[in-house]
Amino acid sequence: MLSNVIMICTGMIGLAMLFCLWRLIKGPDITDRILALDTLYINSIALIILLGLYYGTALYFEGALLIAMLGFVSTSAVAKYLLRGDIIE
């Protein structure tokens, strides 16, 4: 039962990732593209956590945490670059 629910959620998250990829490619503005990339990070984290639940191992959760930290740092760096034009002051 749980494996069926995980597969359904995986499909729904995959569909959400396709929509975010479409917004990343087709976005009318750079801020829309940055938000789509940030949402792709969040969806990939959810997908990895679902994979960890499906296989029953904690290694996937550590990978999801690593992607979350890198996603936050990269989004902050891109936002700072757009605001000031320079990342390192």
Rank of each mutant, 00 (worst) to 15 (best):
L15C: 10
F72N: 06
S3W: 06
L82A: 13
L51V: 11
L82C: 04
K26I: 03
T39S: 14
N4M: 05
A46M: 14
M12Y: 03
D86E: 15
G71Y: 02
G14K: 04
I6N: 02
V78W: 05
I88S: 09
E89A: 09
G71N: 06
I34R: 00
I87E: 12
L37G: 08
L83M: 13
P28E: 15
D29P: 01
T57I: 13
T31N: 10
L15N: 00
K80I: 15
I67M: 13
A58R: 12
S74K: 06
L51S: 02
L70H: 00
F72A: 04
G56H: 12
I42C: 08
E62F: 13
L15G: 09
L21Q: 03
F72I: 15
L66K: 09
E89V: 08
L59W: 15
R23I: 10
E62V: 15
L47S: 14
I25E: 10
N43T: 09
C9H: 00
I49Q: 02
V73E: 00
F61A: 08
G14D: 04
L47M: 07
K80A: 12
L18P: 00
F19G: 04
L15T: 13
L35G: 00
L37Q: 09
I30V: 11
T39M: 10
L51G: 04
A68C: 03
V78G: 01
I49P: 01
E89L: 08
I8N: 08
I49K: 01
M12N: 11
I45A: 09
M12H: 02
G11D: 11
K26S: 12
L24N: 00
Y81N: 06
I87V: 15
I34S: 07
L83E: 06
D29W: 04
D32M: 13
I67H: 08
N4V: 08
L82N: 12
E62G: 11
M69C: 13
T31A: 12
G27P: 04
L47T: 06
Y81W: 13
M69A: 10
I49R: 01
D32Q: 15
Y54M: 11
F72S: 09
V73M: 08
I48P: 08
S44R: 02
I8D: 09
Y41C: 13
A77Q: 05
R33T: 08
L65R: 04
K26H: 09
I34M: 05
I87L: 12
D32V: 12
F19W: 04
M1S: 07
S3T: 05
G52Q: 07
G71F: 12
A64G: 07
L82D: 03
T57H: 05
L24F: 15
G71A: 02
D32I: 10
S76H: 14
Y41M: 12
R33N: 05
P28Q: 04
G85M: 07
I34E: 06
G14I: 02
N43G: 12
I25K: 06
L35Y: 11
R23K: 14
G85V: 15
T75W: 07
A79N: 10
L35M: 07
A68D: 00
L59E: 14
M12S: 14
M1E: 13
T57R: 10
L53V: 04
A16V: 04
P28N: 15
A64E: 08
A68L: 15
